[in-house]
Design a protein around this nucleic acid. Sequence first.
DNA 1: TAGATTGTTAATCGATTAACAATC
DNA 2: TAGATTGTTAATCGATTAACAATC
Lengths: 223, 223
Amino acid sequence: MSEPEQKSGGDGGDSTVPKAVVSRLSLYLRQLQQGVRDGQATISSKELGRLLGFTDAQVRKDLAYFGHFGYPGIGYRCDELISAIKKILGTDQQWPVALVGVGNLGRALIGYKGFAQRGFRIVAAFDNAQETVGTEIDGVRIHHLDSLPEVARENKIRLGMIAVPVGAAQAVADRLVAVGVEGILNFAPVTINLPGGVSQVGVDLAIELEQLTFSVVNRGTAT
Amino acid sequence: MSEPEQKSGGDGGDSTVPKAVVSRLSLYLRQLQQGVRDGQATISSKELGRLLGFTDAQVRKDLAYFGHFGYPGIGYRCDELISAIKKILGTDQQWPVALVGVGNLGRALIGYKGFAQRGFRIVAAFDNAQETVGTEIDGVRIHHLDSLPEVARENKIRLGMIAVPVGAAQAVADRLVAVGVEGILNFAPVTINLPGGVSQVGVDLAIELEQLTFSVVNRGTAT
DNA sequence: TAGATTGTTAATCGATTAACAATC
DNA sequence: TAGATTGTTAATCGATTAACAATC
């Protein structure tokens, strides 16, 4: 039984992969894990596409950016493809994450079970409300924001999540960048400015509802 | 002072607007509101684009899908453009929303301030844990899921949010559809199947982190 | 072998950008 | 008027789809 090859040996990540491809990769991974839970050993591009609303050609093309993972006549072996995609996304390892902002949303993030299952662990949370600093929530210690430098260093933090009010978001981002954070998941409804070399993903809950509203109001557009 | 015209009178929503355009519309709106808070009366496509990382041509093209909102030599009047975009997105009115699933995340959604400011109000929440049913959180009543039909009808609910575990998501979605919900914001990490005519927006928190991880691991890709 | 399905090329489709006449 | 900026067209760029030889 031969291991599937991998293009451009090592980490993959050739030239430029379209952003859209990467986001579909996450969906493939999620669906494959669902498949494994349902006892499925292999899956074809056609089936995988059907489950997610993509064409089979698109599934094959997306995966082919990164290597030869399939078996003609058979399809893809779920466990192999799961490992391959995790490696591509960088989630074949555990990532320690820092959370800043322990309000309603921050607390929900600390308690969110879905992170652990996909390679993320909130190892420290920060706030500057005296009431919360020093306490623990779900086993996660709440530190004062001023101790960010030490705690970040000790825990080798490379990813941060921002769940503070709009007015504080940019300042918090600056502090995260200052301690060497390389990627920020921003829940504050504002576009923050980051230096090159630091990545940002923004999640604005109201905007998500807005997008939904548009498609409801304009019958015809879906998903 | 002449009102800016609007293409295809009435609701707008001509033929097919690319999905990407609609998502930028939400960002324009957010930035414009920020501008107004900072006391700005007008803004050019160049400035608006710069603040969000788009080209000026893209901003103009996006807006031109829906009408003539700008003034040559001047730019766009913030308040006018805000009204126009709200009307396009359908958020010039208040939308009552139903939430299903009152766990950690559900509670955070109930308390989230950002919804009200953008035209959404969670008017009822549903769960089937006996402990929570009958209580109120932040003024929002928690009902048993079985009373969804009555409550949805009484409140003219057209939008629903799902914050239940993966295993329950599809069944909950089916029940929402059955009571006439037309759009679902799904926080469960699974793709749910909906009949045509019902829209879905999925938010998977772990996937957002995954996307971030990819761009961190593959230095060069940003935002 | 026949059937299924891959990886990949070429063709199509759609979205972004550059350029510019029209306008204030 | 000169300067700024729009809306729109044409050119460019990129992403999706269809088709098919190669493979199991």
